[in-house]
Amino acid sequence: MDFKLQTGIFTEEQNFKPLKTDIVYDVLILGGGPAGFTAAVYCMRKGVSTGLIVKEIGGQVAETAGIENYMGYRYINGMDLAMKFKEQVAQFGIDYDEKGTVKAIETGDVKKVRLTDGRVFSARALIIATGAAWRKLGVPGEDELRGKGVANCSTCDAPFYVNKKVVVVGGGNSGIEAAIDLAKVGEKVTMVQFLDRLTGDKSLEDKLHEFKNVQVRYEHEVTGINGSQSVESVTVKNRKTGKTEDVSAQGIFVEIGLVPNSEFAKGVLKLNQAGEIMVDCASRTSAPGIFAAGDVTDVPFKQIIIAAGEGAKAALSACNYILMGE
């Protein structure tokens, strides 16, 4: 048995100080994924007064089984990497709040951040790095059968599908990883892919093709999830012929990309059609003194290493804004 001890939870906690409501910070960072944590390290090293508001440590990184494309680690699991980020931030003794959810932000010389629990924090500059969440299919049965066969985390839930039939929706890296996890234990995995090809990394695709119990349905989409108590079948539609068919399955894993966590920025910052916060090459949003980084922005390619880099850039821009008024 492996023990995935996360020493960061226990030993570094005392270095964090509670976030204060009665002062104006130079920079407040919203988000505890790679972008937010990296921004925090850069701001602390610059010596500006900094606060960090984290809803979930690691964000999507924590939900990723294995990571092979973050430099410095040939292989690391997502939760471990997230904890290493947190430990690295903890050494600076930053003002820190965990589990708070941002409800609204306000622009101005002093920006306000309102949390759902009623607290209000102030800062001269904000860095928004609130990331993204799983995108839903938006088909009948999805909400009703969530937790009853409709799932997102294959690492967590694969053990429930031993010798069972499952559908995986989405042919990107997340979809392929889920299909591999499930093919190891399940009787049959049907992948439903919108396009006529998979869009993941070749190394993952090669691994997928080693499994004989995986079938990929290209140019198909899911139009319904059926079952009374739990998932019994998934209705798929051929996008070329329009023909629909019920695929027998006890589970369905939805891996079709992300929606940005930008609800609180609507009407305050300029968003694109996908709801992503629009930023320029220096991470500036449409409001002066508000910067954004990572998966919540319109920067292409949602990758850990890109989010981390963007976090560094946003922090340096925010520090310039504070120190030089740029």
Binding site: R146, G147, K148, G149, V150, A151, C153, C156, D157, P159, F160, Q229, S230, Q250, G251
Partner: peptide, 19 residues
């Protein structure tokens, strides 16, 4: 740990964790 008590998993229809 649902894998040690599958009968409980079935009773409560646990197919997604944590539940």
């Amino acid at each position: 740990d649902v894998s040690l008590f599958p009968y409980l998993g079935q009773r409560y229809q646990v197919t997604s964790v944590p539940m």
